[in-house]
Amino acid sequence: MLVELVIAVVMGLLFLGIHRKVIARIQGRPGPPIWQEILHTLKFSFKETWVPRTASTLLYVGIIAVAMGIWTAALYVVLAGGSILILFGIYMLHKMVEHGVGLSPGSPYAKFGGIRSVISASSEIPLFAVIGGIYFFTGSLMISDLVAYQADNGPLLLSILPAAIAMYLVILSKMHYGPFSIVEAKEIVSGYQTEHFGVWRAGLQIGDAIKTFVLLYAFVLIFVGQLGPVLLLVAMLALLVSLSFICAVSPMLSPYDSVTVQMVAICILVVWLGVLVVIG
């Protein structure tokens, strides 16, 4: 468990580095080396650190531990083949991390990031299309059951493509530099993370790393099935590169457009679910 956790942190940071590298190459820049995010995290953890005078101290510090803790729990759920309902619950609880990080320091920029994270709540709704679709098809939400189901019936990716697309959208809306990442847009400095510097930012980076790893891993497990270590890594990398590609070629949407696009996606998914229920 501990070994997997450390692997998840390192691999997640590496994935984030690859993400930046791919975006840079697509945009014709050299980009940072792929281990840059690991170096970042190390660098941040040696920086001068304090708590802003206006901050709500316990929340300011505690929310970092929450960020790492919930994704550690998510990693365990995926490894143990637990319920994807828990996994998605944790994904939505991550929203609270954004609010807490944004609202605790008292900075107006961070606060804007937090408020934007409230209005982008629509990015979570496709999850329920995923859950609904999977439950409808397989009759179970346990990852272990899903893996067994796919071993018998072939990958779910082909049979319930809309659900896969929905989950893909969900992961996309949490990637850095993506079209939906309005919570960390540059016009509000660094969004909700503006006032978390030094060690606090390093902690957020670790949480982010586990999050990236868990989401990619969960996508592969849920929609492709159990693979060997090498194939698994290849699948996760392919998924990541496709996400990076979308992030590289699409502009960041304005908050209003971002919500609108997600709403349209939700409507399409709801119609699909309705059709499923009617036909089934």
Binding site: T54, L59, G106, P108
Partner: peptide
């Protein structure tokens, strides 16, 4: 956290 933390001051 609500019980123990003091509230933030908004700038």
């Amino acid at each position: 956290i609500c019980i123990l933390s003091r509230p933030e001051q908004q700038l």
